[in-house]
Design a protein around this nucleic acid. Sequence first.
DNA 1: TACACGTGGCC
DNA 2: TGGCCAAGTGT
Length: 356
Amino acid sequence: MNSLPTSDALLDWYDRHARTLPWRTSPEDRRLGVVPDPYSVWLSEIMLQQTTVAAVKDYYVKFLALWPRVEDLAAADTEDVMKAWAGLGYYSRARNLKKCAEQVAFELGGRFPETEEGLQSLPGIGPYTAAAISAIAFNHHAAVVDGNVERVLSRLHEITTPLPDAKPAIREAMDALTPNDRPGDFAQAVMDLGATICTPKRPACALCPWMTECKSQSSGLAETLPRKAPKKAKPTRKGAAFIAIRDHDDAVLLGRRPPKGLLGGMTEVPGTFWADDFDLSTALSHAPVQGNWRKRSGIVKHTFTHFHLELDIYVCRLAPESSPPQELWWSEKEQQTDEALPTVMRKALEAGLSGT
DNA sequence: TACACGTGGCC
DNA sequence: TGGCCAAGTGT
């Protein structure tokens, strides 16, 4: 007969196998009395929302070097923050990051709230992030539930209800399992377990500290959990982008996207709207300036969360004395690296500038 | 409740 | 190659 899983068994495993991450206070350091910096914990948690550890690392280091304290980030130009965030995705996170820093620095005396309720009242902080910061930065008892935790606990207790209906049961299970002693380390332990052992595919159950207590390991259902509602198919939208190149210095014409919605507030290559039924033969009527536009062979493909995009790329060269149309600007070659260009726009730019 | 919201790596 | 997946939040 199986015994019940304990936090101690997992914490023992974590003490031996915790990943070393730039934002993490190691279990050894915690034992020595090192206290995490709430600002660092918050910054890392926002970046890690729906984003892999590998993708976050360099951005985290860069942000902390640019803005070491919450007051620095609060005082920064939003445009500089968007530039530093460019490429990481989910750009509303960057806008909320800035807003949150301003609230903490200017209204809360530079101190983050310690409770889940207080934290969740801040922009960009939802139930998961509030619990994570409260537990990791302040060692408060909080049930931290992310995608890893959902997978680990649905397998541990063989919860076969599909997500998201299973969320309440998973949250209760996490709450019951979380120790008062080391809630932050425990939350990170479950996430590390999910990231390295209890993986979505081919979990390494033989290495799991909870193997003998895991119901779905015994039954063989582990790899099939958690169950999820089927996903909707992504439609394909089409459009065109216009790369206007200035003679002599190869500067390109760029613009700013509207503040909200897809890629809100980010820099863009001028283009058409994107639609399922977009008539590509009408693309040129949307060109930002008159010119000898030439369509490049091939298209740029990109996939967003909820649709595929296929872009035709048009290129033209303009005289060096050309002044940019309203709301657009010339971006010189060396300057383009620093623009707040999302990946899809960098792809379009690359396609237009290569092989000319 | 359901959908909008990015990107890169994996198989 | 294309769907799946990753430390979710806002509306």
